[in-house]
Amino acid sequence: MEANPTSKQTIIDNETQREKEEQLWSWGAGTDGQLGTLRLQDEHLPQLLNVPSLSSASSVSMLACGGAHVVGLTSSGKVLTWGRGNSGQLGHGDMDCLLSPKIVMSLESYCITQVSAGWSHSGFVSDERCVFTCGDGSFGQLGHGDYRSHCSPVKVSFFVNKHVEQIACGMRHSLVLLKDGSGNLLYGFGSGKRGQLGISIDRSKSVNAPEIIRGFDDVQIITITANADHSAALSADGELYTWGRGFGATSDFLSPQQSPSSSKFSKVALGWNHALVLSDNGEVFMLGGSHHGMLSNPEITILSKHLSDGAVLERVPGLDGIKVVDIAAGAEHSAIVTEEGAIKIWGWGEHGQLGLGSTRDETSPQTVSLGDEVERKDGTVRVYCGSGYTYAIRTFFS
Rank of each mutant, 00 (worst) to 15 (best):
66 G>D: 03
42 D>Y: 00
377 K>A: 09
46 P>K: 13
60 V>Y: 02
292 H>F: 15
100 S>C: 06
321 G>D: 06
63 L>S: 04
165 E>K: 13
351 H>Q: 12
311 A>D: 14
73 L>N: 09
222 I>A: 01
114 Q>H: 08
304 S>Y: 08
298 P>N: 07
8 K>R: 14
381 V>M: 08
128 E>A: 06
373 E>S: 08
130 C>W: 00
344 K>N: 04
240 L>E: 02
17 Q>R: 13
33 G>R: 06
263 S>F: 08
375 E>V: 14
378 D>H: 14
362 E>M: 10
228 A>E: 12
19 E>W: 03
323 K>E: 12
175 L>S: 05
141 Q>L: 04
108 E>K: 13
240 L>Q: 02
111 C>L: 01
294 M>C: 15
322 I>K: 14
397 F>L: 10
89 Q>R: 07
176 V>M: 11
103 I>A: 10
28 G>Q: 10
177 L>E: 09
294 M>N: 15
372 D>Y: 08
371 G>Y: 07
252 D>T: 05
53 S>E: 15
74 T>P: 02
398 S>G: 03
271 G>S: 05
274 H>A: 02
321 G>S: 02
151 C>F: 00
243 W>D: 01
319 L>W: 07
60 V>D: 00
47 Q>F: 00
77 G>Q: 04
165 E>S: 12
284 V>Y: 02
137 G>A: 08
181 G>A: 08
270 L>K: 04
338 T>P: 04
6 T>G: 12
353 Q>R: 03
81 T>A: 10
310 G>Q: 08
176 V>C: 15
252 D>H: 12
239 E>H: 05
253 F>D: 03
38 L>E: 14
327 I>V: 14
23 Q>G: 03
279 S>I: 02
128 E>V: 02
57 A>S: 15
351 H>F: 10
297 N>H: 07
9 Q>R: 10
68 A>F: 04
190 G>E: 08
362 E>F: 09
